[in-house]
Design a protein around this nucleic acid. Structure first.
Lengths: 345, 345
DNA sequence: TTGAAAGCGCTAACAG
DNA sequence: CTGTTAGCGCTTTCAA
């Protein structure tokens, strides 16, 4: 049985060169058992000389852990993900894990071996998963739960009966306060709302907040003012642009998030509609560029980096056998008033 | 020898349930050999029923490939990385690979098992690497080269003699044109330059472009006008702020990149220095928010998403045994005139 | 404190 | 087209 012998240094080479058994080398590498100082010293030298690197796959196979965690999202568009990834990556790295990133959009396009049985991220190539918003269906979550696979959900709550840890942000109350501001302080009444992706909870709760505010002020809900902006600049731009072609009797836009707000501003500017004099524009997230927009954007500050950090902590705790502090974490948000709503003159 | 038998479905279970050998199952899974339609059909059903998922580690061990590629950077700060990652991820996913992301900043902070021999990314847990800018030292590149480990470099050229594929962008000529514009069109002469991280080539070439322009116009190079902005908003803000405390005789700032330009604008605004009337500000990258800044930023458009896409293509080609189209790819950039330089009134 | 040895789940010769 | 089987490199009992 001839087989191309991969010419790399294995644990056996190290053991031989150091005059010990592979078990000892393994113990040394993993600090999983006693090793005499003399042997340890020798091993350190030999490993350096040989430039030895353990084979990750072999470790995974033998130990049943990968020391990797996955991050899953429908897509990775927009600035939103930068603080999120930074938050995740910072704790994941510190705790000795590697981060795997996958977006489902790509996966659907792609071939992936044409085999449904080989998922990009999941048991067997990661020890756990952080899943953003609607990246995992209820059914997929059920399957993962059956396998007892560690998953932490962010910006989404699990189906009933699945006690996955969750990190979400307060959407409804903040949106309510934001729209209240538009109505009460600036007297706006025809407020366009650009909702996000259909299956996203953020989208749902922001719409609830929007409706609640209208209702509280006795403003009738006009379905024609509610469009789909997709939480994304391009789609928001198109939505606003087409709205403007047949109707201009609105005096404010809640863009759904800041990314979309930028698209909205672009569309309005093209038609020379002045912000905020003629139309007020507000967003959600408070991305770090939002204060630099022209005019600076009134929005809701969401602690996105914290979401990432906390989710990663929950997951690492779980994986490391530390009791997870809270099953559900709801992070507070707050309205940030700048100029796009009409404040500050 | 009692061992906690991981209760998961293996290829053997599938083989048994389908009444075939594991080899057949493997061939089916990998399309690595003929399988009769009948068997294939049965296998498909059995795999679904059993909810079977192959063990990635075992595959890696047996096949010597991981189907994963790593992305390495010093940090993941700023919007710059969004298009880059999107570009990379899109082709990587389509070609059946998984993306691993690691930043060295985290790694240095972290413990990583306290063992230098266990790298986060490299041979044995990825088939190849895309390394951004200064994330890999010359020496590390030499070691990887010795191991014949596939690496594609972006925004950095390899040390002499290491024929790694490279994707970079044109920095010097574009910077030169940008500064020329400031001088020739707007008559600016005291131009502050905020350089990036010390070991980054982008930083070096942009400085060269800056110098070349000054020299061509007979303006003396004033080292006191050259600060370190770190290609990053916060550092740029601090640098400008402190400069302003003891000297205000400059009439323009080349921020190094757009991220830094935002920090610069912030610092100038705090001192009520009008942009562009009193001080022109220009950047580099043309991040997608740059056109929304106040005033819209004059900058250099860099095809960041293309860089990611092309680098990923090169790497996947290499890994898949397809000859790499070009060893070195230099992508063009171009000046984008907006208002922060003083144009358009 | 150490070593021997049994797998972990899969791939890939090779023979049929 | 299919089955048999020898590892891949490592971890982890267990006995010494």
């Amino acid at each position: 049985m001839v087989r191309k012998k991969p010419s790399s240094v294995t644990i056996r080479d190290v053991a031989r060169a150091a005059g010990v058994s592979v078990a000892t080398v393994s113990r040394y590498l993993n600090r999983s058992g006693p090793v005499s100082p003399r042997v340890a010293q020798k091993l350190a030298r030999v490993i350096a000389e040989l430039n030895y690197m353990p084979h990750a796959g072999a470790r995974h196979l033998a130990s049943h852990r990968t020391r990797a965690v996955g991050f899953l999202s429908q897509n990775i568009l927009g600035d939103f993900f930068i603080p999120l990834l930074r938050g995740i990556e910072s704790v994941i790295g510190r705790r000795g894990y590697t981060l795997l990133v996958a977006s489902r959009q790509t996966l659907l396009d792609g071939v992936i071996g044409g085999n449904e049985a080989v998922p990009p991220l999941g048991p067997h190539n990661a020890d756990g998963l952080i899943a953003f918003a609607d990246s995992l269906s209820d059914e997929e979550l059920h399957r993962l739960y059956q396998r007892r696979f560690p998953v932490v959900l962010i910006h989404r709550t699990p189906p009933d009966g699945l006690p996955f840890p969750v990190v979400t942000i307060e959407n409804k109350a903040a949106t309510r306060a934001l729209i209240d501001h538009l109505i009460e302080v600036h007297g706006r009444k025809q407020i366009v709302f650009l909702r996000g992706p259909a299956n996203q909870e953020d989208s749902y709760w922001r719409e609830e907040g929007y409706k609640a505010s209208l209702q509280a002020h006795g403003i009738e809900y006009d379905p024609a003012l509610v469009l789909t902006g997709g939480f994304e600049r391009g789609m928001a731009y198109e939505a606003m642009k087409s709205l403007c072609t047949f109707r201009l009797d609105f005096d404010a836009v809640f863009a759904g998030n800041d990314d979309a707000a930028i698209g909205v501003m672009e569309a309005l500017r093209e038609r020379d509609i002045r912000i905020p004099e003629r139309v007020a524009v507000v967003g959600f997230d408070d991305q770090w560029v939002s204060s630099f927009l022209d005019p600076p954007l009134t929005t809701v500050a969401a602690p996105t980096e914290d979401v990432g950090r906390i989710a990663a902590q929950r997951l690492c705790d779980w994986l490391d056998g530390i009791p997870v502090a809270e099953l559900a974490t709801l992070l507070p948000t707050r309205v940030v008033i700048r100029r796009s709503c009409g404040c500050n003159g």
